[in-house]
Write a protein that binds this DNA or RNA. Structure first.
Ligand SMILES: [Mn+2]
Ligand SMILES: [Mn+2]
Ligand SMILES: [Zn+2]
Ligand SMILES: [Zn+2]
Lengths: 143, 143
DNA sequence: GATTTTATTGCAACTTTGTTGCATTTTAGG
DNA sequence: CCTAAAATGCAACAAAGTTGCAATAAAATC
């Protein structure tokens, strides 16, 4: 409940009205290391009669306001996560998505940026603007 | 129709029965540069009364037999493509997916392998086995 | 070439994920 | 406290994909 004040301030900074739904969803997303699906979040908020449509809209609002982003899971639905934050509290938009082949959880991991971006091989006319690294393997939980 | 003989041989090599559906889908996938969705393929085969379930099953068969692979599109559904083939006719499983931000087409592009894989930064316990590069930008068609 | 075996196909019904329209409620600011 | 604007809940809908089952087509054996 001390958190709530911080979340409140944070939402207002983002130009959003503060609602109980937004505080709730923000808290769920804050308290996980892995990206969560819409139904994961619904499960974690059982008892708070949060409507599924409202949750979809809340997540989209978070995305359009730069609070969260979504990642496609291996079984074709969206997982949502807050933007990873650096040691110096700045948002890292250059990060990788680690997909555990065993538990299927997806983690947003900071990666070493010294690696150069893979360039298309002898292909002309492809102009790269952004990129996403998806890493597959085994996560610490499943090791 | 000269192609059909090649496809026929190819399917048998893969341990699959030769059916008109498989020949048809193989031909569609052969004759495109970009990954296609289930409904793209249905559209391109209109007139051949190919059932949607049969198409899903055919695509999955191609995947489990190493003929094709699927890529998640930006709007959360699967696009299917044959494995890209090298100059020396060997399958490249190390390639990038180029997503055009304008036309939303996805291309499988060979990439220079000299770039090292991005390693997780100071994170322990993540064992990377494979990876996928997703590159966003503008494709030659939309340039 | 006909027969048998086995895999593939088509259809209907269903599930899961996500969207739209609209009436009601909540928020923020004066 | 009052008001305008935004957020919410509900019902109905749409798209993507799956399951079970009976009918059909491929290929192996004779
Ligand atoms: Mn991420
Ligand atoms: Mn590919
Ligand atoms: Zn795991
Ligand atoms: Zn394009």
């Amino acid at each position: 409940m001390a958190r709530n004040k911080q979340y409140h301030q944070f939402l207002r900074q983002c130009g959003l009205k503060v609602t109980s739904t937004r505080l709730l969803v923000l808290d769920v997303l804050m308290s996980t290391r892995t990206a969560l699906s819409h139904s994961d979040i619904l499960d974690k908020t059982r008892g708070s009669r949060l409507d599924k449509v409202t949750l979809y809209r809340t997540l989209n609002t978070f995305i359009t306001h730069g609070i969260a982003h979504k990642v496609a899971s291996e079984d074709r639905n969206w997982l949502y996560a807050l933007h990873p934050i650096d040691r110096n509290n700045t948002v890292r938009d250059d990060h990788a998505h680690f997909i555990c082949d065993q538990c299927e959880r997806i983690y947003c991991l900071p990666v070493q940026t010294r690696n150069s971006m893979p360039a298309p091989e002898s292909e002309e006319g492809f102009v790269i603007r952004t990129h996403e690294y998806r890493l597959h393997g085994i996560c610490p939980q499943c090791h």
